Every structure is written in structure tokens, then in C-alpha cells.
Simulated assay, not measured.
Amino acid sequence: MSAVELAGLRKSYADVTVLDDFSLRANQGELVTLLGPSGCGKTTTLRCIAGLERAERGEIRIGERLVACPERRVFLPPNRRDIGMVFQSYALWPHMTVFGNVAYPLRVRRRDRRERQRAVMEILAMVGMDSYAHRPVTELSGGQQQRVALARAMVARPAVLLFDEPLSNLDAKLRRSMRREIRDAHDRSGGTSIYVTHDQEEAITLSDRVVVIRGGKIQQVGTPKEIYTKPATRFVADFIGFENLLTATVSEARDGSTAVKLTSGAGPVWTSKGITRAPGTEVVLAARADELEIGSPGSPGEAPAAAIPGVIRSRTYAGGRVEYLVEAAGAQVVVRAPEAGAAGSTLEAGSDAWVRFPVDAAVLVDDDNAERAPQAAEQTVESVPLRGAT
């Protein structure tokens, strides 16, 4: 078993606390992504697991083995933790060939020469770099160097693979290609992988579970679909790409749906997704720009029920779709619609328009300042079995 368990980790630098009572379990065979903005603690968490940083408090287990616990004076060095790590900078040795870089972990483990030769060529073939085995790494492109770093991390078949934003230096097209290769590499390994990124698209497409982190604390844990469609808080919704976050107040709840009125008094807007709160509670209405509807008051037919009137402030072409910035109900609302416009009309900047939130598009989330937000995050984490957590 190569599950990774963190219980009550605390890590500080001088007077800045980076991780605060951080607890999580990555199960055997899972690819778990730590997602959050720069400085949130995700890379520090990875480095603590690897043994490159020491936490002041808490436990780290890899499989059944306790690898770090300051209270019990336990700390295994990185070379005894059975891990492979891919760094953001790749960290390849420039004086070595591709073969030499990939063979290095096996040399450290004192594998014999013939075994090293076989294992290195097998893993290079897996990542499509076997024909470059004897080329200096300094003569490789960024994507090729990334493949070499991946091969080096995997060659000794470690129980745990750790990825520290390995694709951030690549162009968009190559990043998409390498995501598939990393996912395939994880599936072939049969072990546990923990992946760090600030890119929500990477997290959604790669992971079995996503852990959203803010200020050293877990905000939400869930499957990619849960995180994408049911964010728990305003911060999570904003970070994973909900362009519209509007303060509202619950006015009615019935039959599994909730009605809210926006701060301006516009509404009601009905939604069947997200949190359920009592009437009078302040919440946040979150919606993606692609899921909203827009039209012109002058187009054939009447505006649909519950449409909110507004004025188009800008109109931007977005590759087959048009992005509108609409001032509606005292808020700025972003809508992306087919290029032909809505209801057969052409919507231009400065013209009147209406915006509608379909009932299955908007999601109600807690505001980050609400007392319930941290409690919701704690409940999500506690649903995962933790060893030694209090």
C-alpha cells in the first residue's frame, strides 16, 4: 500500500504560517491535485511529503510507514521515502546525457548495470525518448526535458510520484499533450500521485480528486466534477473559473430549488444547485459566463421570466462566441453567447439587453466571510479517514 496520509501538519517560515493543521489522505492508486494560488502552501505540502522540508508539527505516513513526526522525533530523509519527484524546473543535470539522468536513481539504489540498462531503456521508450538516450540534455527542447524528468521520477518504480507544477514552463498545446502522458504514467505505475498546480484546467482534467487550498488551509476536497459544478465557497468558485459572483439574499426555498434576490433587489433568480439556506440568509450567486442567456428587449417575443434588464458595456469576439460585459442589477455580469447573438438579434455595446440565469446554471455558495465556510471545509476533510488526526 502506498497511500499518503497527512495529519495536523504545521509549517512556518519565521513569523509566517504556511500550513496550519493540514490533514489529508491520498489513497492507493489515486492522483490527487493540490490546487491554489501562489503562496497558498501547496508546494510546501509537497516538499514536506518528499522530506525536503520539515514540519514543526504533525505526522506524514507513506503506506504503513511513519516518515515524519516532530513530536516523536521521526524524520526519514528523502532517499528512504520511496518517492519520485518531478520539479517545475525539471532539475536535470546538464553535464549528463539523457540516459545518465534517468539512470541516476538506480545508481543511488545500487542496482546492477544490466538492470539499470534495461530499466532505463524501457522507461525512455514509454515516454518516447529512447532514441535520445545518449544525447546531452542541454540539446533537448522543453517538452523533451519534461519527458526525461518524468522518466527519471518513474524509473525506480516508487510508491509515490510527486509533481511540482511540471508543465508551467511549456506552451498551451504542449501542456495539453503532456497532461495525457502524465495521467498515463500514473495509471501505469499503479502507485499514488500528488500533483501541484495553480491551473484549474490541469486539476480538472488530470485528477481523481482535487484539493483546493487557500492560506495553508483546505477549502474543499472533491472529484473534478464536484469542484467544477458545486464549489463550496466564493473563493473556490472564483478560483475555478466562475466569472460571475453576485451577492444575494435567499427569499424562498421549495421543491429542492432556492430563490434569491440580488443586492439591488432584482429577481427572484431560481437555482437548483449549491447550498441550501434559510430565507433572509446572505449568499453568493455564482454562474459561468457560458451558461447564461442574453437577448435584446427589441427582439421578437418577450424576455423570458426572471430576466434581469441591463445595458451592454462591451462586446468582445472570443473565437466563435461573443463575450458581453453587461451592467445589470447594479453588478457587472459576463455572458458568452454564440456569435450570431441571442433571439436572432445583434447585440452591440451601449444597447439595452436582458440577462437570464437558467435554473440549472447558477450555483449558490457561501461567502468566504461567513462563519459556515471554514466549517464546511473541515467537514469535507473529515469525511476522509485520517490516521492520528484529532
Rank of each mutant, 00 (worst) to 15 (best):
R107D: 13
E302V: 11
N79G: 12
L140M: 05
S314N: 06
G142W: 07
V283H: 11
E293M: 14
Y132T: 05
S272P: 10
L364I: 11
Y324M: 04
Q220L: 04
R65N: 09
V212F: 13
P300R: 07
S299T: 06
E243Y: 06
L174Y: 06
E243W: 10
E71P: 07
R321P: 02
R72I: 03
G36T: 01
R179D: 00
Q144A: 04
R114E: 15
S264L: 04
I312H: 08
M1F: 11
L262S: 07
S131Y: 10
I194V: 11
A232I: 08
C40K: 01
A151P: 11
Q219G: 13
R288M: 11
V210A: 04
E282D: 15
G265P: 06
T45P: 02
T229M: 10
R313H: 15
V283D: 10
T197D: 03
A55N: 12
M1C: 09
Q200R: 09
G319E: 03
A373M: 01
F22D: 05
S141M: 04
Y13G: 08
T249S: 12
M121L: 13
R72T: 07
V260Q: 02
V284L: 01
E202S: 00
V335K: 08
I194R: 00
P304N: 09
T205F: 03
E291S: 14
D112T: 08
